[in-house]
């Protein structure tokens, strides 16, 4: 076992604290920056203590938006992001539950072939296929729509694989018992598999919601209509758009607000999330 003497413990803590500090510091800077007025940033040095403009900055960001940068008010972008993240998370879960169900419980030709195809796409991130995907979405006329924002990101090898692994831990007798009880495949799926997977679904929901929320490149490519801007890309627009210097205090306020929903999702679903990743119900 690890030696438990005083010095090694202190060293371990020092390293951990240093690591945490490295991660926390930028977040801290963002929060601090969002409480100062625009003038502060022009001097070139970042203050490390809270300013007095917090209330004003946040109300400006939330209610007025930055008309000059061509971005809609932040509420609109938050809503867009929320719709996109929810559609992606729920869509991914629905699709991968069904495909895992098919792969585990049905015998059809090329079953393992399809499984491996799905598995191999795990290695391809969105960015790799982004040009052809853009072409497809453009040809289908889905630019500047929620469908275009979410559908191409819904197919998920990761979730399919996770559900497959989970389904395989469910004893076969469960299926047989359900068959004896007169449950067809879909009934078995709805009445047995779905309730049993609930913690896994919650865990994946958290991961996928954050994945969808943090999408940056894809919304940047396919939306030109400010009505469909998401918050994450909206921040980019705020920085680069407009003729004047970026209004860093407002950008930072937006950043802090944009970071809130994922944090809230995690906070609310933490218990289920941890359970879903660690526990297998038998």
């Amino acid at each position: 076992m690890v030696e438990n003497d005083r010095w090694s413990r202190m060293l371990a803590h020092a390293i951990l604290i240093l690591g945490v500090a490295l991660v926390i510091f930028p977040v801290y800077v963002a929060i601090i920056a969002s409480t100062h007025d625009g003038q502060t940033f022009l001097s070139g040095t970042l203050p490390l203590l809270p300013g007095t403009q917090a209330w004003q900055n946040y109300t400006t960001v939330i209610f007025e938006g930055r008309s000059r940068a061509g971005t809609p008010p932040i509420a609109q972008m938050l809503w867009n992001s929320f719709i996109m993240a929810m559609t992606i998370a729920l869509g991914k879960i629905a699709i991968s539950l069904l495909s895992a169900f098919a792969i585990v419980y049905f015998r059809f030709p090329f079953r393992m072939f399809f499984f491996w195809i799905i598995f191999m796409t795990l290695m391809l991130p969105v960015e790799v296929r982004i040009v052809p995907t853009f072409q497809v979405v453009a040809d289908l006329g889905m630019l500047n729509s929620f469908a275009g924002l979410s559908i191409p990101l819904i197919a998920s090898a990761t979730a399919t694989f996770l559900f497959r692994q989970f389904f395989m831990t469910i004893p076969e007798e469960m299926l047989e018992a359900a068959r004896m009880d007169g449950a067809g495949p879909l009934k078995f799926f709805r009445d047995i598999l779905l309730p049993l997977s609930i913690t896994n679904i919650a865990a994946l929901f958290v991961i996928m919601f954050i994945y969808g929320w943090n999408q940056y490149l894809w919304p940047l490519l396919i939306t030109t209509d400010p009505g469909y801007y998401t918050i994450v890309m909206g921040i980019q627009r705020m920085v680069t758009g407009g003729d004047s210097e970026p209004l860093w205090h407002l950008v930072m306020a937006t950043v802090v607000i944009a970071a809130l929903p994922p944090i809230l999702v995690i906070l609310f679903m933490q218990r289920l999330f941890v359970k879903g990743l660690t526990e297998t119900e038998k």
């Binding site: 004893p171 007798e173 469960m174 047989e176 018992a177 359900a178 068959r179 004896m180 009880d181 007169g182 449950a183 009445d191 047995i192 309730p195 049993l196 609930i198 119900e281 038998k282």
Partner: peptide
């Protein structure tokens, strides 16, 4: 015939009870 159509019932070695259902629901499901 499908198992359910054969009018038979089976008790499994590991019981195969539905873990998310109460005893009542387990018995009522069929």
């Amino acid at each position: 015939l499908e198992p359910a159509q054969r009018d038979i019932a089976m008790v499994f070695q590991n019981y195969a009870l539905y873990p998310h259902m109460t005893v009542y629901q387990n018995m009522a499901y069929g």
